[in-house]
Amino acid sequence: MSEILDEWPLYEIFVRGRRGLNHVHVGSLHAADDEMALRHARDVYTRRNEGVSIWAVRSDAIAASSPDEKDPLFAPSCDKVYRHPTFYDIPEDVPHM
């Protein structure tokens, strides 16, 4: 095995917080395979809550488009491994302290 193997591929994690909601993107992590990605997702992004549904998708398996991406020449990340899905906007007024 060559040395590139010591970095696991990137996965995108989608979580359905409760029934009736869509799965939403919560973040990314590294895992060697799908099973490990799900396990890591439970450890990293939830408290292993049993009622929570998780999707783990390899980042390089996601087809993505972006409204501003008129010309592939100008999309520096389109030829990278680390292609991320379109993210969703979040509210601005974040509580703190």
Binding site: M1, L5, D6, E7, W8, A32, D33, D34, M36
Partner: peptide, 12 residues
Amino acid sequence: REAAAAFAARQF
């Protein structure tokens, strides 16, 4: 990390 990657490569 290498072991897990090698294992994954063999499985999938």
